[in-house]
Amino acid sequence: MTASIVVSDREETAQRLLASSARKSYDPMVEVDWEAPIPDDKFGLTPEWSTLYGTALWDEMTEEQKIELTKHEAASVSSVGLWFEILLMQMLLRDVYGRDKHSRHVQFALTEVADECRHSVMFARAGERLNMPSYGPHPAIHKLGRIWGGFFRGANAYASVMAAEEILDMMQRDFMKDERVQPVTRTVSKIHVLEEARHIRFAREEVGRRIEGASWARLQFERLNTAVVVYFVMKSMIRKDVYANAGLDPERAAAEAKNNQHYKDTVRTSGSKLMQFLDGVGLVGGPSKRLYKRVHLL
């Protein structure tokens, strides 16, 4: 391994995270003003995060078209976040099923499930409030998720979850600060970022704990499984339907998005912290590198 992380006692970490949850948690049904009007002049997400930003097509689009596209992209991102939150809740409940329910570790895992349940409703409500389609991942990936979710085990479960959450986090940290963005997107992003900080800490320590001393064969499996999850999450983030639904030529838009160097650079820069962590615990190497490069994280 090229680096290491400090792994504190499992119960000590869980106790601190439970205390943090007690001090600061959010109810999206209260914190988000779901009745507020949707401004016509606000983007759905930070425009620099649009898959078409920096392309010739983006330069040709009117301001109204750019706003409409980013609303659809925001709804697509939220729907994938919702899909993965559901997989995460399944994994956590399976993981703690046979553990001591008096332990703080299990109690924080259950607290996280409660958080993720609220987040799922929040993501669904955000897409609905923007009056967007219910996107979600491609149907084939959705079906694979149902099967694959049953095989979440050990380090790969926590690494996969942490990676997916950090991908969403890296986008939402920009969304929540950007006054050009719809208020509903900003508030949803802020709630998710603040609460996910605890979840990511929990997952990171579990990854370090469970990967320690792994055999060569197991390490190869953990690497590949984590990379496959990241690959499909990144590929699912923006459905191609968004372009047609935003009134654009879908073929041209998809082609320009695929070759958009600005978007690739944004993903690579924003994902550097995640990749440093995965590399530090030994989860980057071999075939996994090719998958990370295909989604521009390396």
Rank of each mutant, 00 (worst) to 15 (best):
V106A: 15
E85I: 11
R104V: 00
H105Y: 15
S120L: 04
M122Y: 02
V106R: 10
G81K: 09
G98F: 07
A126H: 09
V77F: 14
V77C: 02
Y97P: 04
D115V: 01
S79T: 06
F108V: 01
K101N: 04
P133D: 04
H105S: 14
Y135W: 14
S103H: 09
A124E: 13
S134N: 11
F108K: 09
S103Q: 05
Q90V: 07
I86H: 06
M122W: 04
C117Q: 13
M132N: 05
V77S: 12
S79L: 08
M132E: 05
A126W: 03
L92H: 13
E112W: 02
A109D: 07
D100Y: 05
M89F: 04
V106P: 06
R99W: 13
G127Q: 04
F123M: 11
Y97H: 09
L87Y: 03
L88Y: 10
R94T: 12
Q107T: 00
A126C: 08
S120D: 04
S78G: 14
E112K: 00
R99E: 15
W83T: 12
V80M: 06
Q107M: 08
H105E: 12
G81Q: 05
L87W: 01
Q90N: 10
D95N: 14
R94Q: 11
R94I: 05
L110I: 00
W83D: 05
L130G: 11
R125A: 14
W83L: 01
R118K: 15
S79H: 15
V113S: 08
R129A: 06
S78V: 00
A124W: 05
L92P: 04
W83C: 01
A109Y: 04
K101G: 03
L82D: 14
S78Q: 12
A109T: 05
M122H: 06
H105T: 13
V113H: 01
H102F: 09
A124D: 11
R129D: 05
V80Y: 09
R94G: 03
A114W: 10
Y135N: 15
Q90G: 14
Y135P: 08
V80D: 01
L93Y: 10
R94H: 10
S120M: 03
H102M: 03
R129H: 12
F84C: 00
A124K: 10
A109K: 08
M91A: 15
G127A: 06
R104G: 03
D95K: 14
C117T: 15
D100F: 12
L93P: 11
V80N: 11
L92N: 08
F84M: 12
V77G: 10
H119P: 00
A124T: 01
R94A: 06
H105D: 12
R118D: 04
R129I: 03
F123H: 08
W83N: 06
V80S: 04
L82W: 08
T111H: 05
L93V: 15
L87N: 01
M122G: 09
V113K: 04
H119A: 07
H119R: 02
L92A: 10
T111F: 12
V121Y: 02
Y97E: 14
V113Y: 02
E85T: 08
S79N: 09
V80C: 10
R99M: 14
G127V: 02
D115W: 01
R104I: 00
Q90S: 03
R94E: 12
A126P: 00
H102A: 03
K101H: 14
G127T: 09
M132L: 07
L130E: 05
